[in-house]
Amino acid sequence: MQQSFFQEAGLPPGVLNVVSGDGPSAGAALASHMDVDKIAFTGSTETGKIILELAAKSNLKQVTLELGGKSPFIVCEDAEVDKAVELAHFALFFNQGQCCCAGSRTYVHERVYDEFVEKAKARALTRVVGDPFRKGVEQGPQISSEQFEKVLGYIKSGVESSATLECGGQRFGSRGYFIQPTVFSNVQDDMLIAQDEIFGPVQSILKFKNIDEVIRRANTSRYGLAAGIFTKNIDTANTLSRALRVGTVWINCFDVFDAAIPFGGYKMSGIGREKGIYSLNNYLQVKAVVTPLKNPAWL
């Protein structure tokens, strides 16, 4: 059905081919096949590593990977707290937290930290959880039972590591894979909830003192997909955007995309870029052709 729609739109037959299956079967076959010259994958870092290994063992096919993230959202001391809370809330809780570039490490300057935490908690408590097809619902279920249990496991880890559970932390309702919007404060960089990609509705709020400190701490992550900055100061915004080792930096906004803006990560968040000419370059190869202007002597 999908192929017929593309053909109706003018795509020649055979250009698009849909192969259904899971990773160990269809995915592994494509990644290791000698006649496949290019693989693009979006998903977890763990699966990305497997794909890269299979490609290397076959025909050294070109691979682009858009993988996991643990993106910092940095709230500076001059921030309008109410606006910062709302944007940080969106950056983390969008799509039940199941977003590779989610702002899942919320760094807040110590001057506004306490106010931010209280308002972030209040905002999370008003978030409407339920059937995503119903009007007014902001948050639906996690994608699977496996992910549901994984997120609850991270919440348990946060409690056990002495982070402060401000709200949430439990299953929502008695059916389905719904999780209460969860906010942790007093989170430290060495806690699992500050290091691992939770991929769920769990906001971790960390305190910082100055720009140099937050740059160092934000860059210690093994991921580098994206970052958010909330400030009124253009010098602060420029300093942070240049220093953060991530593929995308959003200033006073988050999750803003355009077909021409490159998207992809540093470090374990991936290889290559999507969108526009940056994406097309991944599917092209450079060829050099050399010919003499005169007949050489040996001809």
Rank of each mutant, 00 (worst) to 15 (best):
residue 248 T to N: 11
residue 106 T to R: 00
residue 105 R to G: 04
residue 125 L to D: 14
residue 92 L to W: 08
residue 226 A to P: 00
residue 75 V to C: 13
residue 261 I to W: 10
residue 184 F to L: 10
residue 15 V to L: 14
residue 108 V to W: 13
residue 186 N to V: 02
residue 154 Y to T: 00
residue 49 K to T: 07
residue 298 W to R: 07
residue 297 A to D: 13
residue 178 F to S: 12
residue 242 R to Y: 06
residue 22 D to A: 08
residue 201 P to Q: 03
residue 58 S to W: 00
residue 253 C to F: 05
residue 222 R to C: 04
residue 72 P to F: 01
residue 22 D to S: 10
residue 199 F to P: 01
residue 106 T to L: 10
residue 215 I to F: 05
residue 213 E to Y: 05
residue 220 T to C: 10
residue 163 A to Q: 12
residue 266 Y to P: 01
residue 40 A to I: 03
residue 175 R to I: 15
residue 96 Q to W: 06
residue 205 I to S: 09
residue 259 A to C: 09
residue 61 K to H: 04
residue 233 N to D: 13
residue 11 L to Q: 12
residue 94 F to G: 05
residue 94 F to S: 10
residue 8 E to F: 07
residue 275 K to A: 03
residue 165 L to I: 00
residue 112 V to T: 02
residue 146 E to Q: 15
residue 72 P to D: 07
residue 20 S to T: 14
residue 264 G to Q: 01
residue 118 E to I: 05
residue 145 S to V: 09
residue 171 R to S: 03
residue 142 Q to I: 05
residue 234 I to S: 13
residue 142 Q to M: 15
residue 290 V to P: 04
residue 55 A to R: 08
residue 201 P to H: 02
residue 44 S to D: 06
residue 190 D to P: 03
residue 231 T to C: 03
residue 37 D to A: 13
residue 3 Q to A: 06
residue 126 T to R: 14
residue 77 E to S: 14
residue 264 G to R: 02
residue 220 T to Y: 08
residue 35 D to H: 15
residue 202 V to G: 00
residue 153 G to Y: 02
residue 182 T to V: 00
residue 22 D to H: 07
residue 74 I to R: 02
residue 154 Y to L: 00
residue 156 K to W: 00
residue 50 I to S: 08
residue 205 I to K: 08
residue 48 G to W: 03
residue 98 Q to S: 11
residue 121 K to M: 09
residue 125 L to Q: 14
residue 152 L to S: 03
residue 243 A to P: 04
residue 126 T to E: 15
residue 226 A to E: 01
residue 242 R to S: 11
residue 142 Q to Y: 08
residue 92 L to N: 07
residue 135 K to P: 08
residue 216 R to V: 10
residue 38 K to G: 09
residue 152 L to V: 09
residue 55 A to W: 11
residue 292 P to M: 13
residue 197 E to L: 08
residue 225 L to R: 00
residue 268 M to F: 04
residue 224 G to R: 10
residue 178 F to V: 11
residue 31 A to L: 04
residue 138 E to V: 05
